[in-house]
């Protein structure tokens, strides 16, 4: 059954789109990530124009993170004080991200920046995940498993001024790194159409030392708010949010995430991370391919507006 996407202005198969949403939702449930970084590339590779893909996925990520945040809200696994700082700076970042997005789109370089951005971020994150997971798997195979320990309680970040006490997370840190993290995630998320959870979680853990029981919930709230703001910004700025596309994806995604979450309980953490690393690297390689391999057709055309006649 075909459905016409009013903003992308093309017909797509509805079940195919729900299927993509479901498959990515399954993976996001399995790995506990937002899935935007897989969804946006998949849409671009299936022929959805990059601007529409990026803007619509932000709406889909709102649904996915709302769904995910529910259980953390009930369990009290969210540091709202910390989230406020992250969200406020994140929205400023998103504002710059959307402005950059529009400027690049007009200059015809949006696809390039999206490709390079994905290559760099997915390549490095995928590589790190895989490296860490393989190390862990090898140690386990050798039988001398190391107990997981967080790196030391303090680092240089904790020496910065303007410290604020976050009671929930049991932290007393400078707001500067908090604001900087929010800003960067907001900027990248709105530019690349990703929630940024897979960058935010490591940043909260390794830079700010947010305890494990607060990390995921706080990150989800930040992603939810930033993506909601980004959706509105994209709608106002470039009118490229296709709600029909976003809705088909989020229906598949919300359902898929439930199955992914139950499947995830049967796999060990390091196996999961190795698998996620492989998938992330595969997407990064696909972008590298489009950047470095001679394109089949170096020419492309885009509509700028109404004609003179």
């Amino acid at each position: 059954m075909n459905v016409y996407l009013p903003i992308a202005e093309l017909s797509v198969n509805l079940f195919f789109m729900i299927g993509i949403g479901g498959a990515v939702g399954f993976l996001s449930g399995l790995f506990g990530v937002g899935g935007g970084f897989l969804l946006t590339p998949l849409l671009i590779f299936t022929g959805i124009p990059a601007p529409v893909a990026v803007a619509s996925v932000t709406g889909t990520v709102v649904a996915a993170s709302t769904s995910g945040a529910q259980s953390y809200i009930r369990r009290g696994g969210i540091d709202f004080h910390l989230a406020t700082y992250l969200v406020l700076s994140g929205i400023i970042g998103a504002f710059f991200g959307v402005a950059t997005f529009s400027a690049l789109r007009n200059a015809g370089q949006l696809d390039l920046v999206i490709s390079v951005g994905y290559l760099v971020f997915l390549g490095s994150i995928g590589g790190l995940l895989l490296y860490e997971a393989i190390g862990s798997l090898v140690r386990r195979a050798k039988g001398n498993e190391r107990p997981h320990k967080l790196p030391g309680q303090h680092n240089w970040v904790h020496g910065l001024p303007m410290r604020v006490r976050f009671k929930r997370s049991n932290l007393y840190v400078s707001v500067l790194p908090v604001l900087a993290i929010g800003l960067v995630i907001g900027f990248l998320g709105s530019l690349l159409g990703i929630g940024g959870g897979f960058i935010l979680v490591p940043a909260l853990v390794y830079i700010l030392r947010v305890p494990g029981n607060m990390v995921i919930g706080t990150s989800l709230i930040q992603v939810l708010c930033i993506m909601a703001a980004t959706t509105v910004l994209h709608a106002v700025n470039s009118q490229s949010v296709d709600i029909v596309l976003a809705f088909s994806l989020m229906v598949g995604g919300v359902v898929g995430a439930q199955f992914g979450a139950s499947a995830g309980q049967r796999l060990r953490g390091d196996q999961l991370r190795a698998l996620l690393g492989l998938i992330v690297l595969a997407v990064a390689l696909r972008f590298a391919y489009s950047l470095f391999v001679t394109p089949l057709d170096p020419f492309s055309t885009a509509i700028l507006g109404l004609g003179e006649a």
Partner: peptide
């Protein structure tokens, strides 16, 4: 565009909430 963006966010929030429930 502003109303459209806000409506899109509301739809997403509702869908996500419904899924979780």
């Amino acid at each position: 565009p502003l109303a459209y963006g806000l409506a899109s966010v509301l739809i997403a929030l509702f869908t996500g909430w419904l899924g979780a429930v």
